[in-house]
Design a protein around this nucleic acid. Structure first.
Length: 438
RNA sequence: UCCCCGAUAGCUCAAUGGUAGAGCAUUCGGCUGUUAACCGAAGGGUUGUAGGUUCAAGUCCUACUCGGGGAGCCA
């Protein structure tokens, strides 16, 4: 048995139809929309790979089939066999002239119609919203970005070394974590795989962690999710300059790949690709925290020495046509594991990459503290549990080397690539503050 | 946690304190090249909940509930 062949024909993906012009094809999908004009029905059929129209003409097909086509409702499942022909009048350049049409399953009245809907309504119907053109296009771009990420690391001899989702303690001790019951004990959902990534890098040299991360912060903005995907490369024998070089190569590679392979999707999303093109080439601009501060001169909302807020990042990001890397923040506002600048111990050897067009912080990274005594001092200063960090401190006892890495937020990257208004459109089923349905 | 905005037909929205309306969706009719097709007709409402002001409240006031955006935090 197979569903992939029917009446002697193998199903063709709609995206591949231009390769099958003047052939008899089988298309299996759903009715996206129908435009009926008397003795002519235009059926817009989608199958997840694309959209094609089938033209059902009275007199050229069984009367019963013509009638049935007229009764198809939006999102009914349909199977069509017919000749694939090129026609200028067809939206996709090709169309199908059916000789056979079967309604596999008639759809009830579909909640998402051709007119506009509010986001609250659409999110409530996320499971159905994913069928719409723009949402599907966004998901295909997300897919391409994921493959670009894995290929980038594979080609450079990085090993995928995923970190656990369950952790016994907070990684950084800063953000709020989700608590879960772990048999008789308490555990947390990971907020970063980095510390485990460091252990993996000491084992395999260059590694990356790629998985979901969880933040219980009560953030309620278009730039936040409580569950999101993060890629975290970590490399032995890397300093801050190496980390920044890797970060810009990495992002430029993703942008280039998406521009090469996702033009139809970017068109559907009406993304202005000229805004992305500069980001395909490196180097990316690098400014120190001190230099970034000067850009904000005169901004009364900014306090020197503090971290940049979202509006400040936007303001700095707008100065450049591609992502900008801000490095060497005051160590006081950064995590305990970051190495301090030997030239100014008040600064951390860290970098944030800010996306253009106000998409915010895409990457956060640093060179890590590799000296045992210094690190244990920091653990104490931050009042973290030495016992919990025993294994992490061990990494500095057994052949410690300079190392570093960064974390890239997948959804923020996809949001920037697609020009999405909300991060929640960049993941199939977003988890947000108080929102866990569907 | 704090600040701002909103809630009217299945959906998106309109309605000077005075008879609650349109487009889409649905149903019926028309149309052989539609591009969110179009044209004609029909059904569809306890205006988020509870109070209050008023001769009269969708509209003004109070509280609550739910939703949206932003701040902080970060990817």
């Amino acid at each position: 048995m197979t569903q992939q062949t029917y009446r002697g024909l193998r199903a063709v993906a709609i995206r591949r139809l231009p390769d099958h012009v003047d052939q008899e094809v089988l298309v299996q999908g759903w009715l996206h929309n129908k435009r009926s004009k008397g003795k002519l029905h235009f059926l817009q059929i989608r199958d997840g790979t694309g959209l094609v129209q089938a033209v059902v003409a009275k007199g050229k097909i069984d009367e019963a089939v013509f009638e049935a086509a007229g009764e198809l409702t939006q999102e009914s499942a349909v199977r069509v066999i017919g000749k694939c022909v090129a026609d200028e009048r067809a939206p996709s350049g090709v169309e199908i002239q059916p000789s056979f049409l079967e309604c596999v399953s008639k759809s009830e009245e579909f909640p998402i119609t051709k007119k506009e809907h509010g986001t609250a309504f659409l999110m409530e119907h996320r499971h159905l919203w994913l069928r719409s053109r723009k949402q599907a296009a966004t998901m295909r771009i997300r897919n391409e970005a994921i493959h670009a990420i894995r290929d980038f690391f594979y080609q450079r001899d990085f090993y995928c070394m995923d970190s656990p989702m369950f952790t016994p303690n907070a990684c950084e001790g800063t953000s709020t974590l989700f608590q879960v019951k772990y048999f008789e004990d308490q555990a947390f959902l990971t907020q970063s795989g980095q510390l485990y990534g460091e252990a993996s890098a000491m084992a395999l040299g260059k590694i990356y962690v790629f998985g979901p991360t969880f933040r219980a912060e009560k953030s309620k903005t278009r730039r936040h999710l409580t569950e999101f995907w993060m890629v975290e490369p970590e490399c032995a024998y890397y300093d801050l300059d190496d980390v920044m070089a890797l970060a810009e190569d990495f992002v430029a590679n993703i942008v280039t790949r998406v521009l090469e392979r996702c033009r139809p999707e970017l068109d559907v999303l009406e993304r202005d690709v000229s805004k992305l093109e500069p980001s395909t080439s490196t180097p990316y601009p690098r400014v120190s925290y001190a230099e970034a501060e000067k850009i904000l001169e005169g901004d009364e909302t900014f306090v020197s020495g503090d971290d940049f807020g979202a509006p400040h990042e936007t303001k700095i990001g707008e100065r450049f046509d591609r992502p900008v890397m801000i490095h060497r923040y005051p160590a006081a506002i950064k995590a305990f594991y970051m190495k301090h600048d030997p030239e100014n111990s008040d600064l951390a050897l860290c970098v944030d990459m800010i996306a253009p067009e106000g998409y915010g912080e895409m990457i956060g990274g640093s060179q890590r503290e590799d000296d045992y005594e210094t690190l244990i001092g920091r653990v104490r200063e931050h009042e973290l549990s030495e016992a919990d960090f025993r294994w992490y401190l061990d990494l500095r006892r057994f052949g410690s080397v300079p190392h570093g890495g960064f974390g890239l937020g997948l959804e923020r990257t996809v949001a920037w690539l697609t020009g999405a208004e909300h991060l929640r459109e960049c993941i199939p089923f977003p988890r947000m503050l108080y929102k866990i349905y569907p």
